[in-house]
């Protein structure tokens, strides 16, 4: 919880006010039509595409001086990308940053939704590489837009059908397609499908920014988000057969950590803040040092 002095010579949160207004308009439209991909004039950002340029632009547009920012990458607050983006906004906006989910008002994420349930007033910003859920089935953008406009979503089920035909079950584990508010089918970005249920009826506002593809979409608070499935192959999240090795948490998403070159490994919380919080409360797992 530190608020460093902002760099001189930058507008608040890096982007100029005209750009922020343009992005906010896109965000408002996205909120008005849940799950619909709104085109926006994505800007060049001081980082390469694929590092979260869409998420950064959305964050810059919604950030206020009193906001507290948290950035996670694969659930972790301490990876390069998360640290860089947090410092970026610390320096260009001078906002307070945190690693605690409960303290944050804006959380930018790549790949995970925090284990701690989000609350009203929080904004979750996703970095999205490919916003179009139909892309790998239908390469033509003109055609996918038609399909969305007419709500022709048979094609997305062809993908799930192929999964079952090949693997005996729906083997898609991330970027698992969802239907938002009973209308648009949306790619929840490459979050594990483990997190899909957290999107449903979530009290927080969820915003999705795809910088390279120039699209913004949104899930407003308390919106129905349904993972697609078949009647005889219902949607299921992955289960882990052991608790976190550090904090002993069950029912959370775990990362595999290789310990040595003799097959040693441990499974730990992917959400580092959640894990640290539990250990601070005195929970321990079997390998806690």
């Amino acid at each position: 919880m530190s608020a460093p002095l902002p760099e001189q010579g930058y507008n608040f949160a890096y982007l100029d006010e005209g750009t922020k207004r343009m992005i906010r308009r896109a965000i408002l439209k996205a909120i008005a039509i849940p799950g619909y991909q709104v085109p926006f004039a994505s800007r060049e950002m001081p980082m390469p595409y694929g590092w979260g340029t869409g998420g950064v632009q959305v964050t810059a547009a919604v950030l206020g001086r009193s906001d507290v920012l948290k950035v996670i990458d694969q659930g972790a607050d301490d990876t390069t990308n998360a640290v860089s983006i947090r410092r970026f906004f610390g320096r260009t906006a001078g906002v307070a940053t945190t690693t605690r989910t409960t303290e944050a008002t804006v959380i930018q994420t790549r790949h995970r939704i925090p284990e701690t349930p989000l609350r009203e007033g929080q904004i979750l910003v996703y970095q999205v590489p490919i916003p179009e859920p139909l892309r790998f089935l239908e390469p033509r953008e003109t055609e996918t837009r038609q399909l969305h406009a007419l709500a022709e979503y048979g094609l997305i089920h062809v993908k799930l059908y192929e999964d079952i035909a090949r693997h005996g079950h729906i083997a898609t584990t991330y970027a698992y397609p969802v239907e938002v508010a009973g209308r648009y089918v949306m790619d929840p970005s490459p979050t594990p499908k483990f997190d899909n249920p957290k999107m449903d009826d979530c009290p927080a506002l969820q915003l999705f920014g795809a910088g390279r593809e120039k699209r913004i979409y949104a899930v407003p608070p308390y919106t129905r988000v349904r993972s697609l499935d078949f009647e005889d192959h219902p949607f299921r999240v992955q289960r882990f057969d052991r608790p976190c090795a550090l904090c002993g948490a069950e029912g959370v998403y775990l990362d595999e950590v290789v310990l040595d070159d003799r097959g040693g490994r441990m499974f730990v919380c992917s959400d580092t803040d959640h894990c640290e919080g539990r250990r601070a409360e005195g929970f321990t797992g079997e390998q806690a040092a």
Binding site: G154, V158, Y161, A165, R166, F230
Partner: peptide, 27 residues
């Protein structure tokens, strides 16, 4: 045809397009 999709998926696409959501029946 969809050349990257299996024969079963090719035949099933129209069924899924008109709302069939039961894998066993489609197959």
């Amino acid at each position: 045809l969809r050349m990257a999709v299996s024969a079963g998926g090719n035949v099933g696409e129209r069924l899924m397009g008109i709302g069939e959501r039961h894998y066993g029946r489609i197959r």
